[in-house]
Amino acid sequence: MTLDAVLDVVAAGCLIAGALLSLAAGVALVRFPDLLSRMHAAAKPQVLGLLLVLLGCALRLRSGVDITTLVLVGAFQLATAPVAAHMVGRAAYPHDEIRRDLLLTDELAAHLDDVRARRADAPGEPDPASRPA
């Protein structure tokens, strides 16, 4: 078996594993009960699955320029996925889409009570908890 054949087999394995993780994200989006658990399921297999597919693609293409482009895509995905997930979660937080009974810990609850108390004091004031995160 030559090196090329071995690299092709490894690339095929990476592509299939990445596609399976994408499928897992799709199943989780349909099956999971609320926004935060869906977001958890969407953010992780999405990033890891995409990195595996990009790795498989890089192993097949094997040229410097193409690998640089693929590394750029992967690095960008790694840098932006947490930011996007954080912003979506923060925008969703004090509202009905989240099932609070499913949360193990709620670090924003004290802050939310604080805000509610302040709003009760001065009802005309805009709600600082709902400002764009």
Binding site: S22, A25, L29, L35, R38, A42, L50, A84, A92, E97
Partner: peptide
């Protein structure tokens, strides 16, 4: 909600990239 759709659109885009 619109945020569910935003998350799902993100995943769809990742599927297209893959």
């Amino acid at each position: 909600s619109i945020l569910d759709r935003a998350v799902a659109t993100d995943v769809l885009l990742a599927v297209v990239v893959a």
